[in-house]
Structure formats: structure tokens, C-alpha cells
Design a protein around this nucleic acid. Sequence first.
DNA 1: TGGTCAATAACCCGGTCGGGGGATTTCAAG
DNA 2: CTTGAAATCCCCCGACCGGGTTATTGACCA
Lengths: 215, 215
Amino acid sequence: MSIKVCVFDDHRRVRDAMSALLKGTPGFEWGGGFPNAENVVKDVEKADPDVVLMDIEMPGLSGIDAVKMLHAKFPDVRIIMQTSFDEDRKIFYSICYGANGYLLKNTPPHQVLEAIKEVYEGGAPMTPSIARRVVELFRSAAMEKPMAEKDYQLSDREFEVLQLLAKGKSYKLIGEALFISAETVHSHVKKIYDKLQVASKTEAVAKALQENLIS
Amino acid sequence: MSIKVCVFDDHRRVRDAMSALLKGTPGFEWGGGFPNAENVVKDVEKADPDVVLMDIEMPGLSGIDAVKMLHAKFPDVRIIMQTSFDEDRKIFYSICYGANGYLLKNTPPHQVLEAIKEVYEGGAPMTPSIARRVVELFRSAAMEKPMAEKDYQLSDREFEVLQLLAKGKSYKLIGEALFISAETVHSHVKKIYDKLQVASKTEAVAKALQENLIS
DNA sequence: TGGTCAATAACCCGGTCGGGGGATTTCAAG
DNA sequence: CTTGAAATCCCCCGACCGGGTTATTGACCA
């Protein structure tokens, strides 16, 4: 069983080179080359490849949109993105939308073949700098939950008041909910502002929500 | 300037091999080998290496805990984890706690050197299967955020106003920020309340933050 | 026993907000 | 060309908020 590969790239030279490379290497099969992604779904449906090499920069439909559609329609087809420079945002979008790997365009032929094999076997070939970015985002995402959680030394009562403020309740309603006078609520609120270093209900609630003081 | 490398591994053979390899290769420097991580902080403080190779499985203090402490104390030291098989959980923890790369133990010497150089230059060397797992977790984590995201049909201008409301600004200040009159802000706010089904700045901001309408 | 602190409460006052009107301009879609 | 939605501006008014100050109670601690 050989790995069938399609190539989407607006440069004829690239397509021809890949065609020659794949046809000349046992274990690989040429699934066709396309200069744009306008008909990416139809093209892939017809060729039924195992792996798609997709240029991230193409005239017309961008490689990113192509990945999005492709992954939605054919989740089993593995996709490797190719571009000439590390462009953060695009790569992240590609990966999020379903690309499995990422190669620089000047990657030598034998490494391209290796990457194709890797991605076919379930790996995620990518340059170290991309890997780094992904790891760091991943880390910050994972660490996000139990974040800093600064301690503003709010008392229990103050947390109760804060929670009700976030519900949009007025001093009077909070007072009724907690069985205290509205003026007392006023006092608590003033202390809260002092501790959180803010000057309005809105700021207090925004800060409290963003820093997970309340839910 | 050569890259100074420390090795933590309970197998003498591994340490000796790395010592010989590093000493025999220009551009690299041997920072010392340690059979366990009991004194990892002191050891690293003394040796002051650029890169640490850390066995994930060691008697006594585990490589993971070592990474945790090391990264907390010396955030600039790059860490590559080494183990004999892909063990998901441990790798993820290592990465979360601050490891920068991940190698299988049977990795050939020249690739180890390459990985050290990569990690030193800011990359994140790892096996394709790890990369794959990381990418997939990353993808699912990234997709998780834009939850429900109900559509309240807010106009662009209304989003701008909402964003500034969340900063605690008054109508007057919002007006100045957007170069419109405070009365116009008032109008926008009234429409926002209508669309979000709320009746105060606080409620609006709480809802917007909780449903990721704004950041 | 005196001091500190959280919780409660009250008063004042100027400024802001929320809700109700109405009005104009602009621009794109029908 | 008409219709409509968005954005802009204005007025009014009562209610609420924010900031200042002061005071009492009960716990806890030294």
C-alpha cells in the first residue's frame, strides 16, 4: 500500500517537482496537483488521497479556508501546510481548522517525504519554532484555569455583595437579599472598591469576573 | 559561545555517553551529570547550564517534579525530557510545568545534539507523535472557548461601547474615546440593554464577559 | 482591659444612570 | 425611490450611585 498525495500550489514548478519526487519513490503515489483551491472539495473527492500538501498562500480561496472545508468534509485526509515563512496567526488557524502538520517550503525533498510518512502514520510534523509556539499557547491555556487568583483580602460578606452586584442588583435589592439595610450595602461596596482598586460597580464586576473571584 | 548541558539520569552509561558526546563536539560544553534530582536546584545553580536533559523516570524525586522546581527557579534554562516510551500524561505534565522539548531515549546522538541546539535557539523539539497529541489538545482547547456564543445582533459600534463599559468608563469618557457625544453613547447603551435584555451597565458587562462577547 | 477589625447603620450631596420622548443624516437594500 | 437600520444628537426627570464622614456592636487578641 502506497501513500497517495495531492498537491495544492499555485507554482507549477512546485507541483512538477512533487509529482516527479512522488512518482519516483516507492511507497508513494501521485494523486494530482492543483493550482488553486477553488474546487478543493471536488478535487479531493475525485482523487481520494491519503495526504494533501496545501500551500497556505494561494490566489483566490486561501489555504486556510481550504483546510477548513477539507477537514469538515474529509476528516481522515491528513493535511500538511506549506509556506515560505513562519507566519504565526495563519499557522494557528490552519492547525485549529484541521491541518496536521506544517512545513517550510524550502524543506529538502527527503524531509518532505519523511513528513508525509509521519503525518500518514499519525504524527504531526512541524518546524521546531511552530512546535514551540504551540507548546507555549498550550501551556498558557492549560494553566489558565487556576490562574494567579490574586488575593484582595475580601471578607465573606464582601464576596456575597460582589456576587449580587454582578447580577446587576441595586443596593436596595442586595440589602433585601442579605437582610441588611441598603446603607450597609453601600458601606460594603465602598470597602470592595477600596480593596479592588476600582470606582464603580461595573469595574468591580469586570475585574471580579476576569480574575475568577466570582462566577 | 558553546551550549552548556547538564544531564539528569540514573543510568551511568547514559551520563557517560552524553559526557563523551558533548565533550567531543565543538559548540557544546559538559555541565555535569547527576544520577537523581534530589538536589536539582542546587546542582543547576552551581553548574549554570543552558540546557538540561532530564530523564522522566528517576528513583526518588521524579523528573516531572524536578521540571516544576527548575522552571520556577530558573525560567531561562531550557529543559528536554527523555524517556523510553511515549507516556502521555507524564509528557503533558512535563510540558505544562515548563519542559521545552521531548526526546525518546533511543534517539541517535546526532539528533540529540540537534535537539539541544534547537531548544537553545528557542525551538521545541519533540517526536511527531507527541506533537500530534499536543496539537490535538490545543485544537480542542481552542475550539472550546467560542462556546454557545449567542448572537444578540449587536452592531460594531455597540460592541465598541460595550467594551468600554466593561472598563468602567462613564458615558462622558466613552464619548470622548469614540469622538461622539455622551448623549449618543446613552442612545447606544439603551439599544444594547434592549438587545441583551438587561437594565444596567453592570448586568450588561457581566453578561458580555460570561458569554465571551467581549474580552 | 484596651485595641483592632468586620459588620452594621445613618446622613449628605453632587453627579451619573435608566427610561421615556423626539430628531437628523447616511447608506444600502428592496 | 422608498424604506429601514445605524449612527448621531438633544431634553427631561426621578432614581440610583460614589465618596465623604461618623457611630455602634461584638469578636478576637494581646
